[in-house]
């Protein structure tokens, strides 16, 4: 091989190695750091796209409405527990720290943390919406889900309703 070709081969293999190493690094880093978003309904009954339930200990994001009257604070430190709900399903979130300014009962928030038991999330970060008009799209979507499913009648009840109407 002439020296010029040798050099080219060297550069090309170096580039290839670099690319492969880079891609491997990126993929592993990605794998470790993807957090799935769940609504309380999805934590209890599985994700609506895939039907998968989160595993205990999994890191995840949860978004929902803070249930009125559910915020309980510790007497001694900053520990706080509150209930998040969508579609009538409730998941409890504990958090040790300062809640954001816009955290209020009855409003949408997103929390990031680990699932500790089937209906309990230990959060390390709580995010609230940023102003009166703005709602995190994820919550907006979760709430849309509620609207679709809100009629809590069973098929039979609906039938009786229909029959009543037709009288």
């Amino acid at each position: 091989m002439n020296p010029r070709r040798k050099q080219r081969l060297f550069i090309a293999s170096l580039l290839f190695l670099g690319l492969a190493a880079g891609a491997a690094l990126i993929l592993t880093a990605l794998d470790e750091n993807i957090d799935f978003f769940y609504s309380p309904t999805e934590i209890l009954h599985g994700k609506k796209e895939t039907g998968l339930k989160p595993k205990i200990g999994q890191r995840l994001r949860i978004g929902g409405m803070v249930k009125e009257g559910s915020v309980v604070r510790s007497e001694k430190d900053l520990n706080v527990t509150f209930a998040l709900q969508t579609n009538g399903d409730v998941v409890y979130v504990t958090f040790d720290g300062i809640l954001p300014d816009l955290f209020r009962e009855g409003q949408g928030i997103v929390a990031q943390g680990h699932l500790r038991s089937p209906n309990k999330v230990e959060a390390f970060e709580v995010l609230a919406k940023h102003d009166e008009e703005y709602m995190p799209p994820e919550i907006a979507e979760a709430m849309k889900g509620i609207k679709h499913e809100k009629p809590q009648y069973t098929a039979e009840q609906l039938e009786t309703l229909e029959q009543k109407k037709s009288y």
Binding site: N33, I34, D35, F36, K47, T50, R59
Partner: peptide, 19 residues
């Protein structure tokens, strides 16, 4: 793609930028 919402944590960026 209909695979659900995800977020990518800060450690992803921090780690790769450190490398």
């Amino acid at each position: 793609l209909g695979l659900g919402s995800i977020s990518i944590g800060e450690p992803f960026f921090n780690k790769l930028f450190s490398y």
